[in-house]
Design a protein around this nucleic acid. Structure first.
Lengths: 211, 211, 211, 211
DNA sequence: GATGAATGAGCCTTCATTCAT
DNA sequence: AATGAATGAAGGCTCATTCAT
């Protein structure tokens, strides 16, 4: 009997996740208003009423979708694992991970982008994410600054925001383009654009020997 | 009689514009799906049916809103008038105009952002706008490059995209923040971030004496 | 000046007729509810408002359409001109005229049929028409009956109703069929069916030598 | 539990029928365009939305109404049960049943008549019905013809069409008249008109002894 | 846990009609 | 004579949500 209960619970957990996944895709493709509960339910292969069995209402479901799949933890890990490779390499990797993360989670990214400007909940999470990432990147830049890698007068936070902003803009503008074009833009961004930016912040006494 | 007709026509023109304005605001605040024809009509102080007297349907109204208020012409003017001031100054001005333009037309900017990912029409116009602006800025950068101001190996298009992208990301992330914060971010961007970027593209033989 | 006025009047008369024609076709094709004032106006190449300049409202326009094009006068003429040809020939001609009249004025006929069951005005006119025609045909049959052509116990009115009813049913059921089929049905009706009916009403003493 | 489910199903079945009935009456009285979903829902005592729970849209509801209540099966039964009574009696009975069937299902009959000329679906069903009935009656007439009851040169199909057409025209023209008048017309038709028609098709060698 | 019946509110759109010009 | 601006009502349909089963 306990087994049955735990099985039920597992089944419930599964359903819940299934619904969140379906909702994520629908919201991502059609937006909050554009995606109906019916759409979501059908995409998950269940009845509309069942959605209300798991989530109080559409708003709540939306919040759960946001909570369940934040970028933040993933990105933090990436940054933490940076280690002590050459900063140029590290930053390029970080931005690459960031860009690819958005690209491979396009539905969610789209949802965040489109609903950020309307949905307070979404805005809150999005901002938290941005701040989290910026803070992490800022911290890293400051560490390197103190080690003499970057100019003393560098504004670490501004640079962090600039780098992430550029990456974000890249995804926004071209994330939906045909795959080939997207890859071209992405590669040029990582190989050419980022280094150009870094040019302005290296400490002069320590000329970089980056690739 | 001719006068009467022209008056009627003027009145009609006015109404049309009035409706487009109202629609712009409603779409900007609530998105395409979220803004109902009723909302728009009420905001313009007329009946729903009148909206259909001027526009075939919601889709068409939306297109008219987009067409009627494209950034492109405004931006082009700004860039064309750049003249021959110091490039650093020019670029700062251009970006400032760009940012302020978005900020002062926030409802439309928001609409473009949120509907870009869903509405083909919007996407088309948005992309045209991006390309137009990038092309203009690219051209300017190339001119300066040929005059020896910028490095020979500078990729003008990539730099143009980077600058505009950063500006866009700035607006996206902070355009809705409290006014004071917005202004701080904006100013820091123009006074600090942009120069940092430029640092990487100046021709070495011609050290800039920018502010 | 008088000329101008009369010209205007003629123009007005023309427009009126034009509108009635357009309305007839629209009502015939789409029914009273299905045909909108806009449809009618467009079909006549004028503005909706002009329809209201000539007719108080849709109902009135409908009535005018019905009044303006009653079958009755046409049919009466046909019957009056019957003269003294052989009755079988006369009846066949009468029915043929009746059928062809409906077929060549299909839009109006359709309108009468479909609106008869709903629209009191239409019902009144239709019934008047039916009664008029039946009365005429009945009178003719009675005259021939008194001349010894038809059986003494023939119920002239019943026979008249039966003949016209059959013709009507023919048009109703097949009037929309492909033209070839329609013509086949029509011809068989006139050449075979009608004579069969007459068989039952000839006076026995006077065997007919019809074709 | 199975009981509960079946009860629910029964309830649903009931609702469905209820809606079809309501729709039938509304369509019959006001026509397809004239009868709104609101009308139908109110007549059935439910919300408009529930109509859409049972039927995909108005068109579908209309089709279901037509399918659910076709004359065809009823008429076929009547004809099949004809047995071997005297043909005059059989035919009179058949036509009487046909007429009464229309009269007692006046709303649907009216709907068929008015929508036949506009609605393809209705036209299809109506035509099938006509052909089915005509075919049955034709077959019966041919059987009797082979047994020597009717003239050798009788065109069974034409006669069948004629008889049913007359009956239809009778209903069309007078089915809405005051009840007394209707009954008079109906009785005269069955007792006088039909025999007159038959007069023309009896085989001469076998003089009928009908009433 | 899961379903289908049921609802009230709202949406986009069309319609018949009026009025100033 | 003719038009276009303007409206209130209604129509078909969808949606988020509840409830009994």
């Amino acid at each position: 009997m306990a087994k049955q209960i735990s099985q039920r619970r597992r089944q419930a957990q599964l359903r819940r996740q299934q619904l969140i996944d379906a909702a994520l895709h629908q919201f991502g493709e059609k937006g909050y208003d554009g995606a109906s509960i019916r759409d979501i339910a059908r995409a998950a292969g269940v009845t509309e009423a069942l959605v209300y069995h798991y989530f109080r209402n559409k708003e709540h479901l939306f919040e759960e979708v946001i909570k369940a799949r934040s970028f933040a933890p993933i990105l933090r890990r990436v940054l933490d694992e940076a280690g002590d490779t050459h900063p140029a390499e590290v930053l390029r990797t970080v931005l690459q991970e960031f860009i690819d993360l958005m690209y491979h989670n396009a539905p969610m990214a789209r949802m965040f982008i489109t609903e950020f400007l309307r949905h307070p909940v979404c805005a809150r999470y999005f901002r938290a994410m941005v701040e989290d990432n910026t803070a992490n990147l800022t911290r890293y830049l400051q560490e390197q600054q103190q080690r003499g890698v970057f100019r003393v007068d560098m504004d670490a936070e501004a640079v962090a925001g600039m780098l992430l902003g550029m990456a974000f803009a890249l995804f926004f503008a071209w994330g939906q383009a045909p795959e080939r074009e997207w890859h071209q833009r992405r590669d040029k961004f990582l190989q050419y654009t980022v280094p150009v930016v870094l040019e302005g912040i290296w400490a002069k006494s320590a000329p970089p020997d980056h690739t």
